[in-house]
Design a protein around this nucleic acid. Structure first.
Lengths: 215, 215
DNA sequence: AAAAATAGTGTTCATTTGTTCACCACAAAT
DNA sequence: ATTTGTGGTGAACAAATGAACACTATTTTT
């Protein structure tokens, strides 16, 4: 599909919105945009946004404050020639998790791996975890595989998650039914783990990718 | 810092905010949260949010609409680190292979993916192939996975290879015994392929990696 | 030369939205 | 017995915010 050309101003505004969103966690208001560019009237700003919507770069929810969302498909790099930093992302690899330490404590970090930017949502602070054991082989996750994890504290039934039980970190399928959390392995030889003590259980993140290297 | 325990309600609300944010591109308002949970008063919602702030899960910008941002935690890494070209390698992704054409003909190239340099030997002309079918699921290679292939014309018994039979490209395990080449799938529902016509068979390369993305 | 797109100011208005208060109810801890 | 934390209703209010209009000016396209 043809991408419509943006004016200089529009491009700067789009890029500001993107940055604001990333740094704040929410989109800017018309006035916040205006202030940054020295545009005193909200109307002036709004017309820029309307133009960006028309050209397919933004979606705007009417009458809602900060109701701006960036169209990620369209936002794709306009000039995709060089493999610059923007296309790639280095994420830390977690090896053994020391008892009681935060997952990403320095002592746990074993290295880092480069993941193609197209796989990563910008907002997330992904990390990679080296899988130990074969409890997930039926889900195609083998011993030694690297799973790419998007940190989040909740999960939906059926998600492959990384969970923490006391000081153990494990990869399983999440199920919450009848007020009971179960961690379901994907291997006939293993039985589901029923979480008894909610105090000692927490969801670390969701598995969004698997990377395996042979030899 | 130890994370404080969330109540059931608080956890669900945190969940909702995170999901809303991810789907909409901006955080919900108090009323939107309330509506979803059947809480008619914004005050009821606000107190949940205040509790989540107090426990360190959220940040709230006062007097700003949708001014909610989720705390990416001290546990979780601050920022993904951008890296330079030298550490990375871009390899082409092969989609459908047109009949009779060389694998790496331009018409077959569907895109490209960055792979961490540490996985790649400099000399090789790696490419990636999108797997179709489930004949290798027992080897942890699923439909839609991307296999990273190092081009080579020889293989050892047991290697996972990409082979070409007439105009079909397939991923299988290689076996050469008693002057007969067999391509062995890793799925009980499939039978080994015995190569009858050596003229039409060739080894394209060896699978050195598997990359899968979920969602 | 005329039309269209871009870029902006200032003002007004209607909604959206966060904040606060008084009050109720229940369970767990002190 | 009393406090504390949780979970809620309903109303009232002020601030934040998007939408709209009239008017100006410059650049680009037709």
């Amino acid at each position: 599909m043809e991408k419509k050309q943006l004016t200089d101003r529009q491009e700067k505004i789009l890029s500001f919105i993107q940055q604001f969103q990333q740094e704040s966690g929410y989109p800017p208001t018309l006035r916040e945009i205006g202030k940054h560019f020295g545009i005193s009237s909200t109307f002036g700003v709004k017309r820029h946004l309307d133009a960006l919507v028309k050209k397919g770069y933004l979606n705007i929810l009417g009458n809602a404050s900060r109701g701006i969302s960036i169209n990620k498909d369209e936002l794709f790099n306009p000039e995709p020639i060089n493999i610059s930093e923007k296309e790639s992302n280095k994420i830390p690899i977690i090896g053994r998790v020391a008892a009681g330490s935060p997952i990403l404590a320095e002592e746990n970090i074993e290295g880092s791996v480069l993941i193609d930017q197209t796989f990563l949502k910008k907002s997330d602070n992904y990390f990679a975890l080296k899988v130990k054991g074969d409890s997930m082989i039926d889900a195609g996750i083998f011993d030694g595989d690297l799973v790419i994890v998007s940190p989040q504290v909740y999960a939906n039934n059926g998600d492959i998650i990384v969970a923490r039980i006391s000081d153990e970190v494990t990869v399983k399928i999440y199920e919450f039914k009848n007020q009971v959390v179960k961690l379901i392995p994907q291997n006939k030889d293993y039985k589901p783990i029923v979480v008894e003590n909610k105090e000692e259980f927490s969801i670390v993140g969701k598995v969004t990718g698997v990377l395996r290297w042979l030899n």
